[in-house]
Structures are given as C-alpha cells and as structure tokens.
Design a protein around this nucleic acid. Sequence first.
RNA 1: GGGUGUGUAGCUCAGCGGUAUGAGCACUACGUUGACAUCGUAGGGGUCACAGGUUCGAUCCCUGUCACACCCACCA
Length: 878
Amino acid sequence: MLEKTYDPKNFEEKIYAAWEEKGAFKPNMNKNKEAFAVVIPPPNVTGVLHMGHALDNTLQDILIRYNRMQGKNVLWQPGTDHAGIATQMVVERNLAAQGITRHDLGREKFVETVWQWKESCGDGICKQLRRLGTSCDWSRTRFTMDEGLSRAVRKIFVRLYKDGLIYKAKKLVNWDPKFMTAVSDLEVIQKEAVGKMYYLKYPIKGEEGAFVHIATTRPETMFGDTAVAVSKDNEKLKHLIGKECIIPIINKAIPIIADEHADPTKGTGAVKITPAHDFNDFEVGKRHNLPLVNILNPDATLNENTPFTGMDTQTARQKTIETLDGLGLMDKIEDHPMVIPYGDRSNVIIEPLMTDQWFVDAPKLAVEAMRVVENGEMQFVPKSYEKTYFEWMRNIQPWCISRQLWWGHQMPIWYGPDETIFCEETEEEAQASADKHYGKHVELRRETDVLDTWFSSGLWAFSTLGWPDKTEYLDTFYPTSVLVTGFDIIFFWVARMMMMSMYAMKKVPFKKCYLHGLIRDEQGRKMSKSKGNTVDPMEIIEKYGADALRFFMAAMETQGRDINVSESRVQGYRNFATKLWNSARFGEMNECVLPKDFDLNTIKHPVNKWIVAKVKQTSNELTENLNNFRFSDSANAVYQFVWGSFCDWYIEMTKPIFYGTDENLKSETRATFAWVLDRILIILHPFMPFVTAELWNNSHSAEQDIISAAWPEKENINTADITQIDWAIDMISAIRSLRAEMNLPAGAKLTALLQGGNAQSVENMQQFNDIICALARLEKAEVYNGEATPDMVQTVFRENTILIPLKGVVDFAAERERLQKELDGLNKNLEGYARKLSNPSFVDRAPAAVVEEERRRQAEAMENKAKVEEALARIVGL
RNA sequence: GGGUGUGUAGCUCAGCGGUAUGAGCACUACGUUGACAUCGUAGGGGUCACAGGUUCGAUCCCUGUCACACCCACCA
C-alpha cells in the first residue's frame, strides 16, 4: 500500500542504493545493441555540487536513462578532475590558516598533503551526484591524476613533443604573481576599471629643453623601455625619428624609432616601447631587434633593473610619478577607462613576463578539429555555437601548457648536464636515451613544471576508456555519443578535447556536443559566493526531493538560454510528483491491476480508448523531443498529459464507471488505468527516476526494474479515439463555465438541455450521459427539440446550444451581461473574418484549406451570434 | 572595435507565417461524491520593444533603431 502522502525522503536514497548495489548503472555490453556513451564533465575535486552541476548532470541522466530504456548498451563514464591551480589554491589556503606555506613543507610533502585532501573530500561531490539520481557507472570512476590517466598524459605529451607539436620557448606570457606561474590566455579575465593615464616627458638627448611626450597607464614600466616609437606618417613628430631620448630617473638613452604601432591619433602619438612587459611592444621589439629589459621579480615586485627594487607595482608607480614630478617631467594625469587583466583564480593583476615556457602548437592541431565540425562529424547543439568555435579556432594562439605549480602532472622532460632535452614516458627511458646520447652515464634533472589542468581533461574522452591500452570499452564506446556541458567551457575544454582527440585517436571524441546555459538567481543575476545569492542544490533536494529539482531543470532547459532558479517553480514540480502519487493511490484504491495478458485491442469504451491514444501521443512526442535534445518540450509534454489529461479528465471520468454497476466495463477500465499508469511511469522515469521507481515497485516484481523497462516505440494513433471524448470534455467545460458565470450554486442539481444537435451529438449525449452528468454536476442531460423559454440560461457550444432551465428566478441582469459579453466576442471575431474574406487577394492567394477554415469559423460565429441575439431579445422582451 | 543572444500576461519564461484555446507562479470568485487543499472549478490580465519592408496575411521572415545580457579582441 502506498503512503497517504508523497514524501521523497522515504525512498529516494533507498532506491538509489539498491540500483547501485545490483549494478543497474553498468552497460549491458550486448554486442548486438547500439552503444550509447557519455563522459561526465569531471567536477573539480575542490568542489561541492552547485546548481550548474545539478543542471548538467540532470540533462545527462535524462539522456542516459532514456537510451538505456531503449535497450542500448549504455555507459555513463564518471570521474573527477584534479583542477591544478584551483585545488592547489584551496589547499594552500587551508595551510595558511595554520600559518604554513607550501614552501615550508617542500614540494613532495605538499603534494602529499593535496592527495590527502583529495582523498578525504574528493568523493563528496560524487555522493552528491548520487543524491541527484545520476546513474553513472561508479565502478569505473576515474581521476585525471590516477595512474592510468597519467600514463595517457605522458604518452600524448611525448608523442606531441616528438612530432614537434610541443616546444619550449622564451616568450612573453601571462604571469600570475600570486601563484607565480604562467597561465593561458583563457585564464585571464579582462575587467573594466577607471584607471589613470599618465603623461610623461622624456628629454631628447643633446637638445636642451626638448622633450618627447609619452602617455602611459603603467609609468613604472619606463625602466624597461628600450625605445620610443613614432609613426613615420606623423608630421608633427617624425622629425624625432633617429634621435635618442633619455629615460628619466635612470638616465638611460634609448632610440626613437619609426613603427606603425605608434598611432598618431592615440595618446601623444609617441609610444614608449617596453618589449619585456607588453605584448604589442614585444612585437615591436622583435621588428627592431630591441633589447629586452625585465624589471619584475616573479612576485611582480620591481627588480634590480629599477631604482625601486622590491616595491610592488602600485607603490613603484606612485614613487615613479612623484619622482618625475620632482624633476618637472610630469605633464598631467587623467582618468582613463581601461581594461585590466586579472587571473581568473587568483584575482590579482596579471603581468606579461618573459619566461621559459612550454607550448602546444594549437594552430596546427586546430586544423583537424575544425575540419570535423565543418563536415558534421561533430555537431554542436544548438548549432549556433559552431560559429563561436570556428571563430576561436581560426584565431587560436599557441597554448601555454606549463605551470610553475606543484599540483598536477609533472612534465616528462629531463635535462642533461648541457641542458639537452630528453622527453620520454619514464625516467628509465629518459636515462637510457641520455646515456646513449652522451656515451656515458649522466645525472639528469627533471623539469619541475606541471601541465595545465586542461591538458589532461583534453584526453578525458578516451583516457577514461582505457587508452593507451586497447580495451573493450574503448572499442565499444569511442567515439562517445554526446558531450553535455556549459557553453562557458567551450574553449577551455570542448575545443581542447577536439584537438587532442583528433590528434590521438583520429576520430571525434563525441558525435554531438550539447551546450547549455548558466544557472542564475531568481532575478537573473550570476550566482556567486561573494554576492551571497547562491542556491545550494542539496538544500533544495532536502526540501522538495531530487525529482522536483530534476524536473525543474528539464522543464526550464530551452536551447540557448540561461536558467533562473525559482524555488516556487521547484515547489510546483514537487506538487506535480504529489499529484502523480495520488493518482497512483486512486488506482490502488480501485484495484487497478494490469492483467498478464492484457490486449489493448480489446478496449471498447471510448474513455479508455481516449486515454490510451493520448498517452501514446505523448510518448511519441517525448521520443521526438528527446531525440532532438528538446528538454523543456519533453518535460512539458509529459506534465501536461499527466496533470491535464490523466488526472483532470481521465480519473474523473472513471469515477462514474467505478461507482457504477457495469462489471465488464469496470474490469476493462481497471486494466486500462494500470496500463496507462505504467506507461506514464516509464516515460516520466528519465525525468523523475525516484518517484516513478517507487510507484512502479508497488505493482511490479523486483526483477522488473523500471530502470530497464522498455521505452515505447513510435505508435500509430487513431485520432477518432481522441475526438469523441474531446467533444464531451468541451461540453462539460461549457456547462461548468455557464454555471460559474451565472453563480449557480455548486451543489444545485440542474438539468442541461442540448438543443439543435446533429446525429453525432445525439449519440454522444447518450453514450456519455453518466460522465457528463457526473462531471458537470447535473441531475440529467438530455437532447431537447423545443424552444428556449425565459426561465432558461443558455450558452453556445459548437453547433449546439446548451440550455439550463432554472427552477428559481433567473438573474436576468447577470444573464444579460454574460450574453452581451459573449456577443461582443463573437462580433469582434466576425469583423476579422469579414475583413479577411472580403479581401480578394486573400481568397485567391491563401491556401484553400486556410480560406475554408476561415469560412467555417465565420459560419459558426454567425450561427452562434444569432442564437445569442435571440436569447438577449427574449430577456429584453420581459 | 568585432561578434552572439534576448526584448511576448504582474513575475519567470514557452511558442509560432494563418483568430495568442500559451505554461508555471502571483491575482479574483466559488468550493460540491471518497486520489490529491502539495487540491478542484471558473475567471481577470497581452497594440508579442519601436519604425520601416516583404507577404493575401507578420508576434514570427528581412532591414534599421532603442534597451539589456554575454563572448572575443584591443585601447600608449
């Protein structure tokens, strides 16, 4: 027996545990079945489940369960990401609370600490994903730094290196002074701010009182200047080209050169060139063979090449302008709107810095990654993201993959005594290779840098399946079917996976990539801890159940749009689960059980035929929508059906049957009810796995698990099965509406007369008499051939008129008002029809069916108008 | 500077070349037999951002304008 109230806490966790226990999430490995695979976007080990995960994983689980129910060989590959910089940051922060830095511990000990931290809370997020109902094969859980995946990383690295696609170079890179590491372009966030523009004067060498005026936003970088550039087209300043000017304070002479980088319309027209600290200037420097002067230490304090050694940039800046001012070399300072680069993790200003780093030749790898999207081997959903992808790929820069961190994959690079590089998968191989190279045994030094965390996640689609070993899983599930992730990591991850997979596997990592939006707060603002507007999915689950949260996500997911979290809406979907629960209880109370050999073709009663046709229609719709990743359409279709058709109408219509005396009809209805409810549970299961399983288990044996129940095939529907009951529904609605508008007491037993009906109406009236009376609260409903009399109220219904005789006094004022309103509506419609139909172009050029429909509507409205006018006249006559 | 997306009911959003039977929440009135008050019935509420164009017909397609959001690049 079902509990009286729906309480997800009673069963959600229990059901999940049972599934996991019996291995229900494992692929069936049936060679004859189509494979369907999804790799999870690995959550960071630093994290707890947030709403973004809840969305992402709900969508994946819907697809996984849907495909599993179709009998496919389904794998959902789970795992977590070591998230290099993010995790190191968290652990360092924890240590800082105890007054320890990572340097106090030393590298080895620190990495050990991170591992401990990973072990102790790394699983937390997987537990939370379980709570959400995600049906991953947890027995296959991988971690980007586990042994197998690390082997994959080394193998790919070595291969790329030997192919010349990984190289070391001294280049200007984005330097994060907090973590003291290089970061990639993508990890730099440009923030708008009102900064200052400083106008300085550099004396011209050998010309007393002559200056070149320079505008800069970073005056402290002047100590790294190695030239001043002026455009050769700059009439005012070109005379300076070839002369030298003096960097004040350090009194260093630098050349004034001609370069098109100096835009005469910007700043003063003369621009200081600091090749070691500005990406544009670096290019200028290359063109003119300018020396590079580095003025920064790794922590972004000024170094000994400046007079302000040890000061941070802000202090040094202040000091610089004060000193310049004292020398009379400051023109002015203006407010200046600008964008300042920040580290996405560290949130400190990023400084361009010259360092030795390792790069992946991304432009080369991008070629194949673009080709397979162009030819449709990998399709973005929504398609519009293709453009974003191509745009980025076309302008891709070498990818800086080295990080001066401690947590991550240490690069498989060893240096010989003369700095010769040996790149091998293991130390032994490197040693052997070095010994051979030098002709004797030498001491090697391993590269200390680690890899960008996205390097290993780039391999995720195949490394998790066992690569580089040849495994059954790799054979079966690669390429995977679809990747589901947020559009915000299209460059970080999707693009890198495409490049790495095409390089390593020569095949796409996934055939489709579904990109969803971001989760925002109720007002549409981005969620952030600092704003304090985050919503904890676990709290929502605690309050409303995982099914409600999941259904919310599905119902809100429309392609290409962000989702605003709305608790009232989640509550609404919890109510939906309650509604479903109670409908099942209704079935239970009326002994609705599915007979073993039940044959749908034996159903005779139109009500039962109707609901069967409707549920088939719904499952067809669902299949279509799910195949096209139309989540909200799917969720809404099943919601509308369950609440609007099954509960509101079907259950109500079965009541007169169950309370009646026709035993054959009762038994047919019981069976139909049970069959339809089963079907509902099946098609709702991907969205609400828990409540559907709990209700299913109530009437099925343990061997028949809903998780592997067969998803319905596409079915043909006899529309005639639907239209007849729709007639009754419309009739009932018309009567209810009339009653409400005339303020007829709900308890009053009334008679409804159907006037002017055709043969079909007459038949319907007879066939559905019980139902119409029960649902419209009537004593009787009959066909009527007489005239309307003043003690009747009336409403038009299709080609008929419904009359209700009132035993008491008709409230004529109310009736007149109501009829007038009805008439106004009809008149408005008629105007529209007349306008259209009197337009010859419309009649000539619109499709015949449209014109015909318009005529039909006009005719119907005219008839109805006549009836209403007649009724009005009758009242006025009184 | 380049690009993308969004402007539809009080709110959050679906939808669509042929009367917006739009959805949920909110709102109003009324609640009747036994699934459900986490409910039921009925109802109010919209010149579909603005201006042009294409079309027999535009909320939908095209162009432009305005507003908001986001992405990329850069600003001495």
